[in-house]
Amino acid sequence: MNNTNVRVALITGGSGGIGRAVAERLAGDGIAVGVHYASSKSKADETVSAITSAGGKAIAVGGDVADEKDMSAAFDAVEMAFGGIDVVVNTAGIMLLSPIATLDLDDLDRMHRTNIRGTFVVSQQAARRVRSGGAIINFSTSVTRLQFPNYGAYAASKGAVEAMTLVLARELRGKDITVNAVAPGPTATPLFLSGKDETTIEHLSKAAPLERLGTPEDIAETVAFLAGPARWINGQVLFANGGLG
């Protein structure tokens, strides 16, 4: 563990949805949080304000996850504010749905840039900077093994995330840093709900044995486990989906 009293986390995509829930959950555990945003500084500031008003420590940091200079600067800012980084949670991602046969290849490239290159850039910085006793947590999706139609390109991008995550866990041998991925199932976030009609949402909400959609808080609990007490879970993909598959 680090030699300061406060653990520090950087959360990409921390301004909304799952990212915000993760930021607030980790702050509740006493972790100082860097809340990253790509474009919505106001939302990141709202998250920071919610954390600080509850007695926690947080700052907002901006940048494109796929730009190594932006991410280096974001990591620098968090280290400058709090003295180091112990946990990196990479929730930033985009989801563009289409049958493979008709997918606009520009959409494929956009997902590749954010979901694959972005995760790689953030993982690279994390591998260089996370302190001993720390944790790196990337985000996949349960669709990598559920094979829902229309999710082909998105699932492919997240399959790449799983691959690099599991390799990085082995590459950090001897550093006492865990590297895992969380793979949520259907979760009630704007990213998931956008573009779906009520019938589709109702069907998906009944698909898991627990017969509801996941919540951002459900996913944040899984992240908090990996970020804190789960020191013997390493090089794994945790499917947080209520038993869907």
Rank of each mutant, 00 (worst) to 15 (best):
E221L: 03
E221C: 10
L204F: 11
L226S: 02
F192M: 09
T187I: 05
P186E: 04
T178W: 02
A220T: 08
A220C: 03
V179G: 05
T215G: 13
H203L: 15
A188F: 10
F239H: 11
R212D: 03
E221V: 03
T189N: 07
S205E: 02
R173A: 12
A227D: 05
T215V: 02
L226C: 00
E217H: 10
D197F: 01
K206R: 15
D218K: 02
V167G: 09
A220I: 00
F192Q: 11
V182E: 02
N180P: 05
L191T: 14
T187D: 01
G174Q: 12
A183F: 02
P229R: 05
L168F: 03
L204Q: 11
R231C: 07
F225S: 00
P209W: 14
T200I: 09
V167E: 06
P184K: 04
L191K: 07
V179L: 06
G174S: 13
F192A: 10
G235M: 04
Q236H: 05
D218N: 03
P190N: 10
E202P: 04
E211Q: 14
E211R: 14
S205R: 12
G214R: 06
V223G: 11
E198G: 05
V182K: 00
G195R: 10
I177L: 04
G228L: 13
P209A: 08
A207T: 13
G195Q: 14
D197E: 06
P216L: 10
P229Y: 01
G195S: 13
E198C: 05
Q236N: 15
P184L: 08
V179T: 11
T222K: 03
I219A: 07
R170W: 08
V223P: 10
I233C: 02
R170C: 12
D176E: 13
L213I: 13
L166M: 12
L193Y: 13
I177Y: 10
L204G: 03
K206H: 14
E217Y: 07
Q236K: 04
D176P: 05
P186V: 09
K175C: 05
P229I: 00
L213Q: 12
G228C: 07
T200C: 08
N180T: 01
T215S: 15
Q236M: 00
T165P: 01
A207Y: 06
L210M: 15
V237A: 03
H203W: 13
E198N: 07
L168Y: 07
A207Q: 14
G235W: 01
L210Q: 08
P186K: 07
S205W: 09
T165V: 04
T187W: 02
L168P: 03
A183V: 04
D218A: 05
L193M: 15
N180V: 00
E198A: 14
A220G: 08
V223F: 02
T199K: 14
E198I: 07
A183K: 01
N234R: 02
I201R: 06
